[in-house]
């Protein structure tokens, strides 16, 4: 780990000032990803700004929904009664990820800002455009079983590893941030970005901005939801493919359906055309197959991850079926509902 200096502000204003006063400073809260990246020399901050003393720990009622402070831990959030009752998709997705110990330390803001788990990104002996812009991408044509099938570029095929963010994308949360330019709210779909020519940027958060909260809208689709996560082992593994699905039914007709995929792109992947296709359709397997087909049209496999195309197609169908039938996937009983 490199040497760095350490500051511990107590106000958001001080924190923003502290991040702007060193060339390569990083905020740290749970540290579960950043400390690990520092051990691999992937991150070499000159300064760490410890934000754990900032007053960003609450979950509050806000505009009919809930405002989740950036420092709320994954465990606190997943087990919060209001989240479990009103946004069970979010609770389920969080509990599908990491381990008990990690969820106790990891925070809401940190989850949004975690980096990819691409092997090449983690290995400083190999080129990686995300770690070292312009050096190349060895995942393309290399070991890429875990990599993206949507939204890739010739520079980067990494995925965003979060489960929580897949649920937040489907729920259409907003990310409230602040910095020298003032406070702003970023729609969740615009928070993470595709790699394009600048894969070093995972998000649209500016270097001197800090996440204050994640704001959930009032509609939580508590009756018809699921988080279905498919992976190499049944617990404590990143998704190969995951689906966060939400459905509003009028009788057996779909009033609204939303679904986001995890493990397949540089950001939680949604497809507006596929979701619109479902509106007004009966909640049947045929409808879900139609939606899956629209999504998968855009899929582009790499040398080792072609299996994700069929896996994702089936996961969409199963996820929408689980959501529509009100039988969400359990995160402890591993049989697929």
């Amino acid at each position: 780990m490199n040497r760095f200096d350490y500051v511990r502000p107590t106000t958001v204003e001080e924190a923003v000032k502290a991040i702007g006063s060193a060339a390569n400073a990083r905020f740290i809260a749970g540290g579960t990803n950043l400390v690990d990246l520092m051990k691999y020399n992937v991150e070499r901050p000159e300064r760490l700004v410890d934000i754990t003393r900032l007053p960003l720990e609450g979950i509050e009622e806000h505009e009919g929904g809930l405002r989740i402070g950036a420092l709320v831990t994954n465990s606190t959030l997943a087990y919060d009664e209001r989240i479990q009752n009103r946004y069970p998709l979010l609770s389920s997705a969080i509990l599908a990820g990491a381990s008990g110990q990690l969820r106790n330390a990891a925070t809401t803001g940190g989850n949004l800002n975690q980096r990819t788990r691409c092997y090449y990104f983690y290995d400083e002996a190999t080129p990686c455009n995300k770690r070292e812009p312009g050096s190349g991408c060895q995942a393309i044509g290399g070991v890429n079983r875990i990599h993206a099938i949507f939204g890739t570029s010739e520079n980067c095929i990494a995925t965003h590893p979060s489960d929580m963010c897949v649920a937040l994308a489907a729920l259409e949360a907003q990310v409230r941030v602040t910095g020298p330019g003032g406070e702003r709210r970023i729609p969740f779909a615009e928070f993470h970005r595709l790699p394009g020519d600048t894969p070093q940027y995972d998000t649209t958060l500016k270097a001197d901005e800090i996440v204050l909260s994640v704001d959930l809208p009032d509609e939580g689709f508590a009756g018809h939801h699921t988080y279905l996560k498919l992976r190499d082992r049944l617990s404590y593994a990143f998704a190969l493919v995951s689906v966060a699905a939400l459905v509003r039914l009028d009788g057996n007709t779909i009033g609204e359906a939303r679904f986001a995929l995890g493990g397949v792109a540089h950001k939680p992947w949604r497809n507006a055309e596929a979701e619109a296709f479902l509106t007004g359709k009966p909640a049947t397997r045929e409808s879900f197959e139609g939606a899956a087909e629209i999504v998968m049209r855009e899929a582009k496999p790499q040398s080792e991850n072609g299996f994700k195309i069929e896996l994702a197609r089936r996961a969409i169908i199963r996820g929408l079926t689980q959501a529509a039938s009100g039988t969400p996937q359990s995160q402890s009983d591993k049989r697929i509902a």
Binding site: T32, V35, L48, Q101, A105
Partner: peptide, 13 residues
């Protein structure tokens, strides 16, 4: 009272 991985925690924090 909460279980965490001590390898990923900086003591100063």
């Amino acid at each position: 009272g909460t279980r965490i991985n001590s390898c990923l925690a900086l003591a100063v924090m």
